[in-house]
C-alpha cells in the first residue's frame, strides 16, 4: 500500500470481512451442488446414449419442455431426459441455495443492510422462476 495514512484510516479486517463460517458453507454448497449435477447429467446422458430412441435427436436440437412430472418419467427415454432435467435443475438451484445461506448468515450477525440485499436477490430469483414457469 503506498499511502500509509490511508491504510490507518481503514476499517479493521474483522469489520470488513464476512462471517468466516459463511465462506465454508458457500464452499460446500457450490462443491456439492456442482458435483451432484455432474453425476445426474452423466447418468442421464448414458441412459439416453445406450438406449437410443427417436426422441433423442430432438433433445439435441430443440428446447425440452420442463415439468416436475417429467423428472420421474416411466419410459427409458423419459428417464434419461428426466435425469438431465434434474441435473440442470440442481445446477441452476446451486447458486440460489448459496444466496439463501448468505441471507441466513448475514441475518445471524445482525448485518441488516446485507440481509436485505441478499433477500432482495432471492426475491428477484423467485421472480425469474415465475417468469419462466408462467410465460
Amino acid at each position: 500500500m503506498a499511502g500509509v495514512g490511508a491504510a490507518r484510516t481503514m476499517p479493521r479486517p474483522e469489520d470488513v470481512d464476512v462471517p468466516p463460517i459463511l465462506r465454508q458453507a458457500i464452499y460446500y454448497t457450490l462443491r456439492i451442488g456442482v458435483g451432484a449435477a455432474v453425476l445426474l447429467l452423466l447418468a442421464g446422458l448414458a441412459l439416453l446414449l445406450f438406449e437410443p430412441s427417436s426422441g433423442f435427436a430432438a433433445t439435441l436440437t430443440h428446447g425440452t419442455p420442463f415439468s416436475i412430472r417429467m423428472l420421474w418419467s416411466g419410459s427409458a427415454e423419459g428417464r434419461g431426459i428426466g435425469l438431465l432435467l434434474a441435473g440442470f435443475l440442481v445446477l441452476v438451484l446451486t447458486p440460489l441455495v448459496r444466496v439463501v445461506i448468505s441471507a441466513i448468515m448475514f441475518g445471524t450477525v445482525h448485518d441488516r443492510a446485507f440481509t436485505t440485499l441478499t433477500l432482495a436477490v432471492l426475491v428477484l430469483l423467485g421472480v425469474s422462476m415465475l417468469l419462466g414457469a408462467y410465460p
Binding site: 447429467l41 428446447g63 425440452t64 420442463f66 431426459i81 446451486t94 440460489l96
Partner: peptide, 28 residues
C-alpha cells in the same frame, strides 16, 4: 456469475428452452 447466469437460466429452463441432450455434454 453463478447467480447472474441462474437468473437467466431459470427463465429458459422452466419455459422449456433448454435442449437437454445438447447442453449436457456442453456443461460436462
Amino acid at each position: 456469475i453463478g447467480v447472474t447466469a441462474t437468473a437467466g437460466a431459470l427463465v429458459y429452463l422452466l419455459s422449456g428452452h433448454l435442449a437437454v441432450a445438447l447442453a449436457a455434454p456442453v456443461a460436462l
